[in-house]
């Protein structure tokens, strides 16, 4: 069953945006939790050596921000059937990352909601774009 707040929102509805301003501590916490030990996310010298302007936010972390934005909006019994993120730009640690999303499809029969989600940096670049299909209801 598609909940009322999704059904009434309809296709094209824009989710309330969220802003995440990362900290070095958060990146280290994420690196530990995700077992991602790449130095570009905590070692500024190594990041520069690899061609970046400084320590950059994990693409996967931005994907996580986007996935949670959609899930929290969809409700407590929502889970992702599919989720995919593409990384087209980098964000330096400490810069605000605006997370946005839009409803692209609602299937009342299968109780699935399709979303497109993206991050915007303060200079307007879309650095991550994502698509998700959320299932409403109990999972197996």
């Amino acid at each position: 069953m598609i909940p009322e707040h999704i059904a009434s929102a309809g296709v094209g509805f824009e989710l309330p945006a969220r802003v995440h301003t990362t900290t070095a501590a958060q990146l280290v916490r994420y690196a530990g939790a995700a077992h991602d030990s790449s130095g570009i996310h905590y070692d500024v010298d190594y990041a520069r050596q690899r061609g970046f302007d400084g320590v950059i936010v994990h693409g996967f972390l931005k994907a996580g921000f986007l996935a949670e934005l959609g899930k929290d909006w969809a409700g407590s019994d929502a889970w992702y059937r599919r989720f995919g993120a593409r990384y087209s730009g980098t964000d330096l640690v400490g810069t605000p990352i605006v997370c946005r999303g839009r409803v692209t499809d609602i299937d009342m029969e299968t109780a699935q909601v399709a979303l497109e989600l993206w991050t915007e940096s303060v200079d307007g670049r879309r650095t991550t774009t994502a698509n998700g299909i959320i299932q409403i209801g109990e999972s197996a």
Partner: peptide
Amino acid sequence: EAFAKAIGATPGTDAPATYFGALDPVERR
């Protein structure tokens, strides 16, 4: 729980959707 906290999600029994990245043998080296 650590993963959920790191991405600002509420910890629960279901892992966040992007938790598959934490189970990637290549990311984990």
